[in-house]
Amino acid sequence: MAEKLLNWDEVLIGAAIKEPGNSRQYETGSWRVERPVWNPDTCIQCMFCWVYCPDSAILVDENGKMAGVNYTFCKGCGICVEQCPSKPKSLKMILEAEAKGKSEEELRKEVFSEDK
């Protein structure tokens, strides 16, 4: 989504924002050092991660169920992992560098291979 950059004499006074939801234009996923990986096999659908995520980066499907992580906005803070109550945890953090070039499915297998 391309935002229109305004000149100094065009911006709204006091840096007020009249257009709602424009934080979508700011892709905070680029900040990430670590990323949460989700395991749907052990997830109990408590939605704690969705409640606590400060960036609304937990994906929800049409049935209101947890459907993964939106990596365009996830900053990798790890709060979802901290909050996850399932045993074993259904969200785990890995280094972003380790995720490079791998699909989500590959990562799941790698991270959760011992958790059945």
Partner: peptide, 22 residues
Amino acid sequence: PVTHGAWAPPNWYFEHKINQLK
């Protein structure tokens, strides 16, 4: 509705500060 006190990244902050100066 309006948002006050939001953040302005490097591509916005400068313009807002100069608007303020004016």
